[in-house]
Design a binder for these strands. Structure first.
Lengths: 340, 340
DNA sequence: TATTAACACGAAAACGTTTGCGAGACACTT
DNA sequence: AAGTGTCTCGCAAACGTTTTCGTGTTAATA
């Protein structure tokens, strides 16, 4: 077991001072050519690499980004991580991932843990519990300390920071409009309770599309699930009782399950019932029939968030530029669960 | 913007030394009750938290675990991360995730980056490129430095370290046996090239099941995909030419797509064709018909790997215990794509 | 009263870097 | 001979902790 070599070792071996070694490895003008070459050769030979922790302590820069998400099994968040990782890595940053499991307490604990020097900035999406409680003190503490924060997807207006979201309302609006234009008049909407920002926005888009086209929407055809978690019973009961000719779902799991129930009750897709889901993930692509979906561009969202964060981190000037909210456009991916 | 408070600040404010503050906050016996109470109260009031970086430098313990995986979009890896995160978090560790993107170079870069003090140990699954090149020097360098490493799923015998895998051969064996026992005699196997350990093992299990039951397997019914990536053309061509009454696939995406092609050619599932896929993810659960799957228990694998790693990290004794390879048992989850 | 023990605290080194500044050696100018 | 300048390099502080050891004070013992 060969231990890691440090500046001190090199210095002792070459009989120079630690500072000389440090400067030589940085190609400082202060050091003579001879000495530099000798030191650099030695360092290369022994494969010297500076200790990240020590450098972090000295520079007060960790080159780490903390990402806190409610859940990693949802495809959307996975793609976001992927985007963050890509952008971060290309700029020399590592990504520390923490899961809040939709729990307020875990979110707070994770933030506090990372805020004590482990990271240079946060990228996060609020847990559902946090959105319910509307308690954002942990976010404020972090920003108060001058740690940059970028919120994505599940955001709040109560915290001043950079944000990146998709235009959820627009996504729902366009999906609804498409179905209405095809003559569907009894669209069912399976969404989530209003405490989740995405729920509210998507419902708004659904209603606005109806209003704009002068078509009444059916209040009783709107199902608000308590959480994003799948509860087959609720959806099955709703769909067996409802009278509908199309379904729009807040995520692809609900949509695929909705299709299943519809088929079980003898309806043909897309002729009798058209189905559209949010989140264009694997399920949508490989469902049978394949699912028309509103793509949320998670990877792009992750990249964007990372870019905004790193810009903030590396901004030396004291005159802080104002916080931005980037709004990404959703895309309707047409497949076989709707008529084209 | 209130800056983070340090021991030094507390010491100056309370007119004691830094060491006294440090000890008082650790409830050391050395410090008098009065002083401790005063210091603790002050620390709580100003919400003092030790700087992780400084503690890491001092203790040579980062409380970070590095996880390097080839890909995060595959459901299996996602569940592994989830398991690692859970176990790590419960023991006070954070998880740094890096993606190799199946690239040897990115794997090496990520490892080197993290190995310079950022983490206390690695959990990783080899990239396909690494498995092809059979170049494991970056792993050896890390273990040589005394950094613990746990390999999971895609492992190699060339590196001495802890490992956790599932019995891939057994999974394939049982799936094959089940189908053979149901009278299927023309099973198609869609797997991957042998350079991926999972490909080899699963193919072995497939063949062994045939041998054990004295039934010949059809060499021409085995398709070895170049990578784990979906290439619809190859699978479609294979399945339209082949004569088969069942399909076993190396992952669920292939399986779901296989079902689709089978259905397109007029075959009924599961009556005419039974289908079984590896990886019991969302796709399997929500496919139509739902997919019988060999569960790989990714979350358990992650938890196990994390537990082994942390045990290694926190092992103080010098007499190192021998490396272990834990073999998890796969589980056959029966659903509607096979006859039950 | 002198000795010792217990107690409470501080000084300082250490972890591995970075960096401003001072200083010795040498050559050159006046 | 004294002053000035240039090159190299080392000293030391700093980042924020932890921990060993030393020391001054007080109380208990002989």
């Amino acid at each position: 077991m060969k231990r890691k070599i440090t500046l001190k070792h090199i210095a002792k071996e070459l009989e120079v001072s630690i500072s000389t070694v440090s400067k030589a490895l940085k190609n400082s003008e202060e050091i003579s050519r001879d000495t530099k070459e000798k030191i650099q050769a030695f360092a290369k030979l022994y494969n010297y690499r500076p200790n990240n922790i020590a450098v972090s302590l000295k520079n007060k820069r960790t080159k780490n980004i903390g990402v806190i998400i409610p859940d990693i099994v949802h495809h959307f968040f996975t793609t976001v991580i992927s985007g963050v990782e890509k952008e971060a890595n290309s700029k020399g940053y590592n990504v520390i991932v923490c899961l809040s499991d939709e729990s307020f307490d875990k979110e707070v604990i994770n933030m506090e843990m990372l805020a004590n020097g482990s990271i240079d900035g946060f990228i996060m999406s609020l847990s559902s519990e946090t959105q319910q409680k509307k308690d954002y003190n942990h976010l404020k503490e972090v920003t108060d300390q001058g740690i940059p924060l970028v919120l994505f997807d599940r955001v709040t207006q109560s915290v001043d920071c950079d944000k990146v979201i998709i235009d959820d309302q627009l996504g729902a609006y366009e999906a609804t409009k498409k179905l209405l234009n095809q003559g569907k008049r009894k669209i069912a909407l399976i969404t989530v309770d209003d405490y989740l920002s995405v729920g509210t926005e998507r419902t708004k888009g659904f209603i606005r599309a109806h209003k704009d086209l002068g078509i009444p929407y059916l209040e009783k055809n709107i199902l608000k699930m308590p959480t994003m978690e799948m509860e087959e019973g609720i959806i099955r009961e709703f769909l067996t009782k409802a009278d509908y000719d199309a379904i729009i779902c807040v995520n692809e799991i609900f949509a695929v399950f909705g299709m299943k129930v519809a088929k079980e009750t003898g309806k043909k897709i897309p002729q009798d019932v058209s189905v559209i889901g949010f989140t264009d993930g694997l399920l949508s692509k490989y469902a049978n029939p394949s699912l028309t979906a509103i793509a949320q561009h998670g990877e792009l969202m992750g990249e964007t968030a990372a870019r905004m964060l790193i810009k903030r981190i590396e901004d030396e000037s004291d005159d802080e530029f104002p916080f931005q909210t980037k709004i990404l456009q959703p895309t309707l991916i047409e497949r076989d669960s709707t008529i084209n």
